[in-house]
Amino acid sequence: MAKTYDYLFKLLLIGDSGVGKTSILFRFSEDAFNISFISTIGIDFKIRTIDLDGKKVKLQIWDTAGQERFRTITTAYYRGSMGIMLVYDVTNEKSFENIKNWIRNIEENASADVEKMILGNKCDLEAKRQVSKERGEQLAVEYQIKFIETSAKDSLNVESAFYTLARDIKAKMEKKQEASNPAGARTGGHQLRNEPQRKPTSWLSRCSLL
C-alpha cells in the first residue's frame, strides 16, 4: 500500500468536560462547528494531513470519548501519544485550575518526552471570561509549555495551534533521528513509535491486528 504521508503523529486532547475539546477537533478536522452531531456519533479520533516544510504529516487526533468526565481516562489512551493539547475554557475558572491536575496525569501516564501545549478555548466569549490571557501565559511559562487562546466557534487560532504542536514534534523527531543515525545501529526489538521512514524489517514481529 502506497504511503500518502511522511509522518504520522498521534495527538491527544485533554481537559475538563465542556471546555470544547470535541469542537476544537471538529474545527480543525472538518472546519465545522456544530454541536448537534458531535454528541451523537462515536468519535474515536479524526485525521487530517497537513503540509509542514514540504513533508506530509498525518495527524491522528484522539478525543477523550467523555472518559475525562469523572477523571477516568484509561492509561491506554496515553500510549504512543506524541503530542497533547491541554484545553481549558476561559469562561470557567475550575477548568483552568484543573490544568495542573491534567499535567500531573500526563506525567504519570504519557511518555516523558511528549510535546504539550495549553489552549484557552472559547476566547470569543469575552463577556463571560473568568481567566485572563495573562494568567494563561503565566501558567504556560511555569511549565515551559506553549500557550495560545482559541475559539473553535470563530475558528480562531485552532489551525495555528495544531501546526505549532506538529512542528515541534517534527523538529524533536528529526533531531532524534539525526542523533541516532550516525551510530546506525538499531537496538533490539522494534521502536514503540510509528516510524514511517524506516519500516521495521518484519511487520510480523510487532503487529497491530489491523
Binding site: 475539546k21 469542537s23 472546519d31 465545522a32
Partner: peptide, 30 residues
Amino acid sequence: PEEIVFEDDVTHGPEFQREDEDAEGDAPKE
C-alpha cells in the same frame, strides 16, 4: 473515523454556551 460522514454542511447548532460548570447529558457534548 474516516467512514463517518456528516451529511449536513456547516450549520450552526445550538448556541455555544454553558452556564454551569459541568456538562449535562451522557455523551461528551462539548
